[in-house]
């Protein structure tokens, strides 16, 4: 399963530049394509697309959200065990460490994919503001 770019793509390249795994290719002002073998379903392409041209793996139309409103991970410090699974799960390197503790080190790199939340085995990470 992977995200899919529809034919109304304007080729602006916003999704290509944001994709953390290099799964999107295409030239300027032409239809872009997602390589389904590489797609990790982070959804960043759908959130950034200003042209409603991205379809989710479930077949729905992805909705653009202004980047300033994208949620970011928040850790429950009482629950977190510093196991670093979220650090490794982050596809952009936005999550780093303060000593042994994970934190959103590079906010600009965060693409609100929630993979950190999904990967946490004990539910110590949530998306917030």
């Amino acid at each position: 399963m992977a995200y899919y770019i529809l034919e109304n793509c304007k080729g602006c390249g916003a999704c290509r530049k944001l994709c953390p795994v290099g799964a999107i290719s295409g030239t300027h002002k032409e239809l872009h394509v997602v390589d389904e073998r590489l797609c990790i379903e982070c959804g960043a392409c759908g959130r950034i697309c200003p042209h409603e041209a991205v379809q989710t793996p479930a077949g729905a139309l992805a909705v653009e959200v202004r980047r300033s409103r994208w949620p970011v991970p928040v850790w429950d410090k009482d629950l977190c065990t510093d196991c670093k699974i979220c650090v490794k799960a982050c596809p952009t390197g936005a999550i780093g460490l303060n000593g042994a503790h994970p934190l959103l080190k590079h906010r600009k790199l965060c693409i609100a994919c929630s993979l950190c939340v999904l990967s946490c085995p004990i539910g110590a990470v949530e998306m917030g503001s």
């Binding site: 510093d82 196991c83 670093k84 490794k88 000593g99 042994a100 085995p121």
Partner: peptide, 9 residues
């Protein structure tokens, strides 16, 4: 500082 391996609490 402490150092955790991956997936180690």
């Amino acid at each position: 500082t402490k150092y955790h391996c991956y997936a180690c609490p």
